[in-house]
Design a protein around this nucleic acid. Sequence first.
DNA 1: GAGACTTTGAGAACAATTGCACAAGCGCGG
DNA 2: CCGCGCTTGTGCAATTGTTCTCAAAGTCTC
Lengths: 228, 228
Amino acid sequence: MPSARRIPEATVARLPLYYRALLETADQHVGTVSSERLAALAGVNAAKVRKDLSYLGSYGTRGVGYDVEFLLHQISRELGLTHDWPVVIVGIGNLGQALANYRGFGARGFQIVALVDADPAKVGTRIGDLSVAALDDLPRVVADCGIAIGIIATPAGAAQEVADRLVDAGVTSILNFAPAVVSVPSGVSLRKVDLAIELQILSFYQQRKVPAVDGQHGETPRAAERVR
Amino acid sequence: MPSARRIPEATVARLPLYYRALLETADQHVGTVSSERLAALAGVNAAKVRKDLSYLGSYGTRGVGYDVEFLLHQISRELGLTHDWPVVIVGIGNLGQALANYRGFGARGFQIVALVDADPAKVGTRIGDLSVAALDDLPRVVADCGIAIGIIATPAGAAQEVADRLVDAGVTSILNFAPAVVSVPSGVSLRKVDLAIELQILSFYQQRKVPAVDGQHGETPRAAERVR
DNA sequence: GAGACTTTGAGAACAATTGCACAAGCGCGG
DNA sequence: CCGCGCTTGTGCAATTGTTCTCAAAGTCTC
């Protein structure tokens, strides 16, 4: 079970970065990593890595570093990646289809087990080895597959309605790709990814560059050294 | 030109939310909005809206609120959305194609003007009304179209190489969808969107729910009232 | 034009996050 | 078994971000 400790949100958001970096490290049959090296691989600084990892427990060895396999296990336990999560995607347009075919999910413990769309013309069509179900079937699909996580990939107008239906069906974590503000009852987690917003943020800094080029912005605040 | 004022990064990240909310408001032929209403539409709280907007200038009227059209203009000027940005997408797999066809970009001032892929089999194929160019053509494409913003939608292994080529070609803002840490020289902006990471963050909180359901997490810290 | 009411803008308190700096702990070589 | 070099874990200060609060400034009614 996960430790009862409270882990800061900023740290939680970085754990997947460490997880990915550790997977790469493990592939190279490296036994231990220092916070310095892990930081380089994850694109953050070493002090942050140490502080973040210290919230999980004292899993390092002074003078040596962190045992790759052990740390990998601890982080995957903390993130709940020791088992696969079944996921449903609602909205099988361009984006929904791309997400359905995206290899990256399966590799990280998420399995797309159901596709749902409101358009009767799409219901029954096959994407990969799944066939698209009707929106009204959502409760049955969620119950049958034990789904706790849903992805909204509909147009903005449908997002709130779909979110409500997901919640009614029993989904308690939602990832929203629709460019719309969605509200959910407390007890349901919601995260959003808005592609246009990311470009607009880039546009803001890009536009300020024209008079005088200044440093890097956004999620990566400094030019990192390339990792070997 | 944009004001020289320094605008906090957190505020910049919310300006697009206000922008979207204001567009919706303008569609309904509403003349002014209060910070309260704008906050509800954007899914944040009113104090934050006022503080954020105050970084742009004193654009509100006490007792009345903000003029929708005027504020819309100010924000779009600040975000650099008064003109269209040409954008190149590198990596025309599932995700790249979905992004190429995504309507949301065009509607927000971003126009996908070029598609590039390293795979010779894909070069020359048409997606929508664009045909895929070779990676080696990147410098020419970027120069010809005056492209400043590039999107990386390749597999993780190719991301750094593509980023380097984009930078060499003259791109100074990059949005990276590949699940890899990419480093760029200072003066180049970089943002990343990692789909698997978002799910892993949800998984973290989801997993903690099983013993005792607690509140909402992630980007939307509280259950918002539904906006009329 | 005075008073009631609304809403902004900003100062200040508060909270979260980051980064520095260094003591403490561990392994290794002699 | 001692000293040295390396690396963690963490207290603390600095920075960044959020929320509270309220005076100031506007509208509207009469």
